[in-house]
Amino acid sequence: MGDTGTTHGVKVDSPLVIRLEHVSKTYKSSTRPALDNVSVDMDKGEFVFLIGPSGSGKSTFLRLLLREEVPSKGRVYVSNFDVAKMARRRVPRLRQSIGCVFQDFRLLATKTVAENVAFALEVIGKPRHTIRKVVPEVLQLVGLDGKADRMPNELSGGEQQRVAIARAFVNRPLVLIADEPTGNLDPDTSQDIMLLLERINRTGTTVVMATHDHSIVDSMRRRVVELSLGKVVRDDARGVYGVGR
């Protein structure tokens, strides 16, 4: 477990998966940086909450990992990818090793549950026999094995998010990124989703989750990196959402 966000030495026993070095990001249309000199390391198998109020830079942080954005300053590493510097044509490789889940699920309304999950493998050219084998497995893992042929609009919000998680995880990514995955869900359903993310984390997948849901962060007692106005203001190995909020 990384106990500080500013340690720069590569640890031998727990290899780094994510590293941000003095990263700043200023969007073209704004003057205030969305991220301001952020340095954070995350190890393989960690579960990290990225917290902070709306606009503090959580989504920007996650988009930098995916190379949806490039930093204005500093360097970003994911696994052995030099994310900011890598050639554009190698970006698909990076993204294949990162799974993504969002608040709005982003399922394809015209495809069934199983097709939605299979889609993620089809478009990266996985062979059909592999797809036929792993899709039912992952649906079972997320607790949707009876609902493979349902359409997304026949599912509850929690179930839809499970499909999204199955899709993000089906290619066994190194890192799972979740941007407010419980933002559209009621507290009970959110708890179920957190249990699922924990299960995925136990397989060795690093989970980075942006949220501003106090109760979830408080109940999980995992590492918490807090952003405020684009700066890292706190990095606790076993944190809570924070006092006085």
Partner: peptide, 14 residues
């Protein structure tokens, strides 16, 4: 669809 394809690492060609 295209957004998802990009996100899961489909190549530009694909």
């Amino acid at each position: 669809e295209v957004g998802i394809m990009r996100l899961v690492g489909a190549t530009r060609w694909y």
